[in-house]
Amino acid sequence: MRTAMLATAPGAIERMATRRVLGAYLEEARSECLRYLRAPGFILPMTLFSTVFYLMFGVLLNHGNADAARYLLASYSTFGIIGPGLFGFGVSLAIERDGGLLTLKRALPMPPGAYLLGKMVMAMIAASIVTVLLLLIGVFLAHVVLSWGELLAMLLAGMFGVLPFCALGMFVGTLLKGQGAPGLLNLVYLPMAFLSGLWLPLSMLPRTLRQIAPIWPSYHLNQLTQAAVGMNNGSLLPHVLVLLGFTAGFLLLATRRLRRHG
């Protein structure tokens, strides 16, 4: 019986070529990018928030203060980078858990991790777009003088700086389903941005707020973007480590919740 069925045995183990598995990861990332870059409701608020703020405070209301333009370029970049991470992951995950797409993908033979990796790539690209827009405004409208190295450092900060916020967004996305996510994310996003000195320099905040600023991951990312434009000469390693730890922590929490509650 067994040998007779061998040629046509159902579900025979058929090794999927590595190239095809990689292809599935790529397709997932490609689809994720396409679908969100085509959704103006998603991409516009994410890019407009930080660019409009920078145009107002860094260009229009800034009367030739070069340091302010430089500082604000970095801090609004931090602000802009956080958005795609928090919202790209958080909102889409909450909606897809609600709408059954995540369930379908888990039932399908999608390679493990492709789903999250796809969203990550999408967030990195969106964060890079925001960074590039802010850099263009900074260089051409606010007349911030940046070296190639500084430009590159900003782009790298944008691409990788988004990751801790992907993890945070993912965690929030596992906490609630559907349309409630944007509200909760804004409750995290806006106060955190304010409290870590992204809108006003920390030196203008009350002392207690200034002292607790390092508990926010955005504070640490801001130290990195400030360093990228030459406004922070301190050691960067502690900030990088804090962000890595933060990413790992929330990723762990989120995957645990996803595994338990789907």
């Binding site: 599935a24 397709e27 997932e28 085509r38 959704a39 909606i95």
Partner: peptide
């Protein structure tokens, strides 16, 4: 798999959805 409730990505075209799903299979 065809589930009763599954909201697929609204902005993707049908051909793109097929291409994505087919990529999961050998």
């Amino acid at each position: 798999v065809m589930l009763q409730h599954a909201e697929l990505p609204p902005t993707l075209r049908v051909g793109e959805l097929l291409r994505l799903t087919a990529s999961y299979y050998p």
